Deep mutational scan, measured.
Amino acid sequence: VCQVIAMYDYAANNEDELSFSKGQLINVMNKDDPDWWQGEINGVTGLFPSNYVKM
């Protein structure tokens, strides 16, 4: 598990995705897919595009 910072706002398009705002910290749970990582914010988990965040 690592933390990343959102570089942009992201609004989920599907129920399994994670919405976040620019500057939010996201706990990364899974990086099996290079493009879509699984993350957690405040107890909510979902997929998000890895190119929207930085380490």
Results as ranks from 00 to 15, higher is better:
D33W: 04
N30W: 05
Y8W: 10
I26F: 08
L47E: 06
N51D: 13
G46C: 02
N27V: 07
Q3H: 04
V53S: 05
N14G: 12
S21H: 15
D32Q: 15
V4D: 02
C2I: 06
N30V: 10
K54G: 04
V1C: 03
L18D: 00
M55R: 08
L47W: 09
K31H: 05
C2H: 04
G23K: 07
G23P: 00
V53I: 15
D35P: 03
D35G: 12
D16N: 09
Q38I: 15
D32H: 04
M7T: 11
G23W: 04
Y10D: 01
I41E: 03
W36I: 05
E15N: 06
Y8R: 14
C2V: 06
D35C: 05
S21Y: 06
S50I: 08
S21G: 11
A11H: 15
N42K: 07
M29H: 09
K22V: 08
S50V: 12
I41A: 14
T45G: 11
K31Q: 11
D16F: 11
V4M: 11
Y10P: 01
V44R: 10
G46Q: 00
K22T: 09
E17Y: 15
W37N: 02
P49E: 03
D35N: 11
L25I: 14
T45F: 10
N14D: 07
Y52Q: 14
D9M: 04
W36F: 15
A12H: 04
W36D: 03
A6P: 02
E40H: 08
P34N: 15
W36G: 02
L25M: 15
K22N: 12
V28W: 00
I5Y: 09
I41H: 14
L18F: 04
N51R: 12
D35Y: 08
V53E: 02
D16Q: 10
Y52W: 05
F48I: 08
Q24F: 13
K54W: 03
K22S: 08
V44I: 15
Y52D: 02
V53K: 01
W36H: 10
D16I: 15
I26E: 01
G23Q: 04
N51I: 08
A6V: 02
F48G: 00
L25S: 13
Y8G: 09
N42H: 14
L25G: 11
M29Y: 04
F48N: 00
P49K: 12
G46V: 01
S19D: 05
V28Y: 01
P49R: 14
A11R: 13
E17I: 04
Q3M: 10
G23A: 05
N27T: 11
P49I: 02
W36A: 07
G43Q: 04
Q24G: 09
P34D: 13
I5K: 04
E17F: 07
M29Q: 06
N14Q: 13
V4T: 08
G23F: 03
V4E: 03
I5E: 09
Q38E: 13
E15L: 09
A11L: 09
E40Q: 07
W37Y: 06
N14E: 10
E17P: 02
N42C: 14
Q24C: 05
Q3W: 08
P34W: 05
D32W: 08
D33H: 15
L47S: 13
N42D: 05
M29I: 11
Y8P: 01
M29W: 10
Y10M: 03
C2D: 11
D32T: 08
G43N: 09
L47D: 05
N42I: 04
V1Y: 03
N27K: 10
T45V: 07
G43P: 01
N13F: 07
A11I: 06
S19M: 04
F48A: 02
N14M: 12
G43Y: 04
D9Q: 06
K54E: 11
P34R: 12
Q3D: 04
F48S: 01
A11Y: 07
Y8N: 14
W36E: 07
V28D: 01
Q24D: 14
D16M: 09
Y10H: 06
M7Y: 11
D32S: 09
D33Y: 06
N42L: 09
N13M: 13
W37V: 01
L25E: 15
S19R: 04
D32I: 09
S19H: 06
I26T: 01
S50R: 13
E15W: 05
Q24Y: 05
Q38K: 14
E15M: 08
I41L: 13
F20E: 00
I41S: 11
N30Y: 06
L18P: 01
Y8F: 15
W36S: 07
A12F: 02
I5M: 05
W36M: 14
Q24S: 09
M55I: 08
K54S: 10
D33P: 03
N13T: 14
F48K: 00
C2S: 13
S19V: 03
I41F: 15
I26W: 00
C2R: 04
K22L: 05
I26N: 02
P34V: 11
C2Y: 14
V44K: 09
Q3T: 10
V44D: 06
A11N: 12
S19L: 02
D16H: 07
M55E: 14
I41R: 12
A12V: 03
P49C: 09
N51C: 10
D9T: 08
N13H: 15
V4A: 12
W37A: 01
F20S: 01
G39M: 01
D9W: 03
F20M: 03
I26H: 00
G46N: 02
M29S: 11
G39K: 00
V44N: 10
F48E: 01
N13W: 03
N27W: 06
M7L: 15
N14C: 12
E15Y: 13
L47G: 12
Q38S: 10
Y10A: 02
K54N: 08
K22F: 05
T45N: 09
Q3E: 15
E15T: 15
N51H: 12
G23N: 14
G39A: 02
F20P: 01
A6L: 00
S50T: 08
S50P: 13
